[in-house]
């Protein structure tokens, strides 16, 4: 009970949990990306991969459960901490200034909210396939076709790239920051951790955005 209190109730515990769930979600994002990149290997291989995932059965549900828990916790803590933070400064400065904090770090809430909106759409689009009659009409199991059809629409692709930019911005601060929250901020280590955020952000943005771009350019058909 005491431990639970310390993790959820204290400012330090909460930020560690925030970091932990954030890193779990980052792990998912990276795994997701590596799966997506199979699109470049062709329709067959990609659908086989998608099918393979589906046939994991219990394991898949466990993973989904874990992911959902991490997601809900991350969201819950974000809301809770933001409310507390706003309450901690009831009167704002008339002249606001920032000395050095990065844009990414100052807009975690905004990029996070954008991500949330995107996830809702993304699930409706690819998992539940309810966004348009054309998608609903596709052969069940042909994930490849869903992707190609979806990204052929420049508006969908545009929104997707924008969301990836938000995700990358979020990770740029979030990943490096997680190490600080765990207390892993130290002379030599920082050389790595400080760069990890931007690196992960770069990979995620370029990796994910390359797919709609490729579809629109006709490299993936």
């Amino acid at each position: 009970m005491k431990l639970c209190d310390r993790v959820f109730g204290s400012p330090v515990g909460a930020k560690m949990l925030m970091a932990l769930t954030g890193l779990m979600l980052t792990g998912f994002v990276l795994a997701h990306l590596s799966g997506n990149l199979l699109l470049y290997a062709g329709q067959e291989k990609f659908n086989a991969y998608a099918h393979g995932l589906q046939s994991l059965g219990l394991l898949l549900w466990l993973a989904r459960g874990g992911l959902l828990t991490a997601f809900v916790l991350h969201l819950y803590l974000a809301i809770k901490l933001t409310i507390e933070n706003k309450a901690a400064r009831p009167v704002p400065y008339a002249h606001e200034a920032t000395i050095q904090a990065s844009l990414a770090s100052r807009h975690m809430v905004h990029t996070g909210l954008l991500m949330f909106a995107f996830i809702v759409y993304h699930l409706a689009h690819f998992t539940f396939r309810v966004t348009s009659p054309e998608i609903e009409a596709l052969t069940p199991g042909d994930a490849y076709a869903v992707v190609v059809l979806g990204f052929s629409n420049p508006v969908v692709s545009g929104f997707y790239i924008l969301a990836m930019a938000a995700l990358a911005t979020h990770l740029r601060h979030g990943v490096s920051s997680a190490f600080q929250s765990f207390g892993l901020y130290h002379g030599n280590l920082n050389v790595v951790t400080d760069k990890l955020g931007p690196i992960v952000a770069g990979i995620v943005f370029v990796g994910f955005s390359s797919i709609p771009v490729s579809v629109l350019l006709g490299c993936i058909k």
Partner: peptide
């Protein structure tokens, strides 16, 4: 840390404005 929370301060979000 417990007292810090009781006083109604906000939470750290690793922006390092404090250090600056």
């Amino acid at each position: 840390v417990d007292q810090m929370k009781k006083e109604g301060f906000g939470n750290c979000s690793n922006q390092y404005e404090c250090e600056a």
